[in-house]
């Protein structure tokens, strides 16, 4: 349903109804912003990059051939822009460019929380601290609810790499839950 709408919106924009681009912006801005903010760890950078991404998408709509979903196409722009920004700033470049076989420690001692903190608060804190690639996978998988195959296309990597990133992120949260003995909330 959503995809049909995207196609219709794009066709309408191509016909000259520029204001319909608002619909595309509204559909993707918050999810893409969430991904960028978690990857770049900076609000203003995230918003600036997102504006650039929408402009890039707008000016390349004429070339858009519907070979993939617009969401895949757009998130590829977003992901690549984020990686470029990280590389350019030489900030977290190691984490951003590492292969998934590295041994980035997702759980360190600083992740022991005060008892009065809510579980969701504690877990959100970890999610915000994840390295860029992990954040990207989590946002695309859980927030945008894209398939592993689509995420592979966006991040230009293999299915097994994406699964490793996803499993590691989940495991990081799992370890924190076990460490804080919070799993009983579910049992």
């Amino acid at each position: 349903m959503k995809e049909i709408n995207d196609v219709e919106i794009i066709e309408s924009i191509k016909k000259g109804n520029i204001n319909d681009f608002n619909l595309l912006i509204d559909a993707y801005k918050n999810k893409a912003y969430s991904m960028l903010k978690r990857m770049l760890k900076n609000e203003s950078d995230a918003e600036e990059i997102l504006q650039d991404c929408f402009l890039k998408a707008y000016y390349s709509l004429d070339k858009f051939q519907y070979k993939s979903k617009f969401s895949t196409y757009f998130y590829r722009i977003v992901y690549n822009s984020a990686i470029t920004k990280l590389s350019g700033k030489k900030r977290l470049i190691e984490q951003a460019m590492d292969s998934v076989d590295d041994h980035y420690d997702l759980i360190d001692e600083s992740y022991s929380f005060e008892n009065n903190k809510e579980l969701s608060e504690k877990l959100n804190e970890i999610i915000e601290k994840l390295p860029p690639k992990y954040s990207a996978v989590l946002n695309l998988f859980y927030l945008e609810q894209l398939s592993i195959k689509e995420i592979c296309e966006i991040m230009a990597t293999t299915e097994s790499n994406i699964k490793v990133l996803l499993y590691r992120s989940r495991n990081a949260l799992k370890e924190i839950i076990i460490k804080n003995n919070l799993q009983e909330e579910l049992i």
């Binding site: 504006q51 959100n124 999610i127 859980y142 992120s169 949260l173 370890e175 839950i177 799993q183 909330e185």
Partner: peptide, 26 residues
């Protein structure tokens, strides 16, 4: 159980909002 709880939490991962005049800027 811990993994299920992590997965459950991730399904509710909060969506962050851009500034209110974002569309106008673009």
């Amino acid at each position: 159980s811990a993994l299920k709880l992590a997965d459950k939490h991730l399904k509710d991962i909060p969506e962050l909002n851009v500034s209110y005049n974002f569309n106008n800027i673009i």
